[in-house]
Design a protein around this nucleic acid. Structure first.
Lengths: 213, 213, 213, 213
DNA sequence: CATGAATGAGTGTTCATTCAT
DNA sequence: GATGAATGAACACTCATTCAT
């Protein structure tokens, strides 16, 4: 399956596409670190320059405005999450239950690894301008649609007795539990407990008994 | 039951406690509006002055720094949510299932009404300083403990077969679904659908059949 | 006669009108000096701060943007020139020839005294934004109309045999000779020679013989 | 008559003189357009690169600094005006009145055609460095001297009764009426009216009656 | 206790010029 | 001789906070 994501084009002064890609990668790395530490608004361009080793002039050869950096980060992140789900869907060898479990498990692993960035994303989406925000919300919407497909397949094969049209939305959101509750969570639970707890909660909510697949 | 919430003391130059309370109420009202519109960092003290009718000098008689205003707003909001749950718990006439449903239903109503502010809270908690943040996280923790009590009662009375220690945490978080997914949500669902969908999802996840209370 | 000039309102954060007037006076003084020395674009806000003794924050309490300072200067200057002509017109005791001579002579004196600023104005009018520029061009237009009135009176009384509708425009412009040619002019002529030379040129061009008034 | 104008030498890295000439021509064309549109200070080197098709590196092979471009434009413009007057003077077949009329008429035609650039010149002369400015002022001075010669000839032949030594200066300046008052002018007058109005004004000021040549 | 002008360090962003390729 | 990415000092402007009145 081909998943074509619309991307907002970010202007650059630089003609060499490979160089643009490479420098933007560097910018994403440096800025992610800084934004996570201080938050988007508190982080300064100078912070990002220091972290990336680029001067402000050079940096601005690859973006038009500060907010573009945020968008670049979001772009990469949503790409990754979407890609993960797409791959799981494409693999039709597995039964619906295994597929669902794999989707949950893999996604949760990614979310765990990138929880700082996902937290950032939840905090700062509102800082994007209209066009970027539209773009990101569209991604979110497409992402929910992918969960929808997984649930539909399960439903058709009699595994899930779907309860509401909103289940896919809720599942997509529920996984943000990890980054959004991280502070209090890590005092009480270990990594594995959190991951399996989440999966169980979803499986149970969908009315699937593990035995009765 | 008495629910004593620790509060961070905010310094003021003003001796008259009643006046402090009244002015802070005004500040909370004005600032909530502004923060929701623009976000905490983009909103300026001048904006809040304009909206509240107070001059900056006067405003700073009732707070020490901008962030205090954010804390005041959070304080009021968490108070309200906590109070709602406390009242439901105190009412021991109801059976555990009715109690749970009431807790969910009432809380969701509040969250619906204050979704703008709750969204703000999720976005800007990281903007608080150490002490305020600690305080708010402690509240969150206490709040989860209240859900824990409701679930425990249900478990003891055989209604719930508790699955994981994390259920209360997840439920507390899940209700933030409304404010955090509002943009995409409102395109697809009506208010009642969202509210009942959420309640059903939780009930189902806890393994309760409506009939078998 | 009342000469009401439309003025573009410049926003200020300061409520005390007298203070606004006084500070703006200071700003005009300081900025005029700097703009004359370096030109509008090369002059920096910090230059103006240094020259006026105001910090940038304070400065920006009295204007919204750099260009506003230019407008303030223009405003004052055009006011003065207009006022001079209006006063001469109002004095109807004099015959048309004496009136014309007085108008020329007084205006040239002012232009001589403020030649730096008038030069600046000719150089930087294009730096104004649409609204300010419109406003200034309207002034210029009104100013020409005042010369028109003086010429008309002379014509009615038989002093001038008017030649073209454009004379007033040309006269209004011709007086800018002093600031615009200052560099080369002052090498060759003395102040009095320049002033009287200009007056004679105009008188002659209008076809007036000094004797035959 | 040979009119040798001193030119400031502008450094170049390029040895091939023909290439230098050609590229500078391209630069003048592109930069004129841009400077007229935005003004010298607001226009960027990048703008000029885009308009000329040259990269910044290449551009800087033909000039040393931004201001050089302005000088190149001025150079060409003053050359043209001077050349026009020189040619009229050299043609000694015509009588002094016809010569004067031709000088005025031809010059005004050029000024009309290049009014944008002449306006630019009046606005931005002060942006030149000492050496360039000296050079341009010397040109202006030489240019006035050419008018002086035309007037002198007329005087010797009894056509003009010269009134002041400053007449040539004033005439040289007066023609800038068109570009400097263009905005207000074009609302009120047609091209021919403006041109003939100017000529009449000068002729009259010099005390020449058309009949009595 | 109210007021609002003053403050100045700090912000995102630009752009003429250079120089390695 | 052509190229275009890199550079960094400098710019206009902001805003939380203070404090004299």
């Amino acid at each position: 399956m081909r998943m074509k994501l619309e991307e907002r084009e970010i202007e650059t002064n630089v003609k060499d596409d490979a160089l643009v890609k490479q420098r933007r990668e560097e910018i994403i790395q440096a800025a992610s670190k800084i934004f996570i530490e201080k938050g988007y608004h508190v982080a300064t361009i100078r912070d990002i320059c220091k972290a990336s080793g680029l001067g402000p002039g050079t940096l601005y050869n690859y973006i038009k405005k500060k907010e573009d950096i945020l968008y670049l980060i979001y772009n990469q992140l949503t790409m990754m999450l979407t890609q993960c789900l797409v791959e799981t869907i494409e693999n039709t060898k597995k039964g619906p239950y295994e597929q669902l479990k794999e989707a949950l498990s893999k996604t949760i692993d990614i979310i765990w690894d990138y929880q700082d960035l996902i937290l950032l994303m939840y905090q700062e989406t509102a800082s994007l301008d209209r066009e970027s925000m539209h773009n990101i919300l569209k991604r979110e919407s497409d992402y929910v649609a992918l969960w929808e497909r997984i649930l539909e397949r399960g439903e058709k094969q009699g595994m899930i007795i779907r309860r509401t049209r909103m289940d896919a939305d809720i599942i997509g959101f529920l996984l943000a539990f990890i980054p959004l509750r991280r502070w209090n969570l890590k005092k009480k639970f270990r990594e594995e407990e959190i991951k399996s707890g989440l999966i169980d909660f979803v499986i149970q909510a969908l009315g699937i008994s593990k035995r009765k697949k």
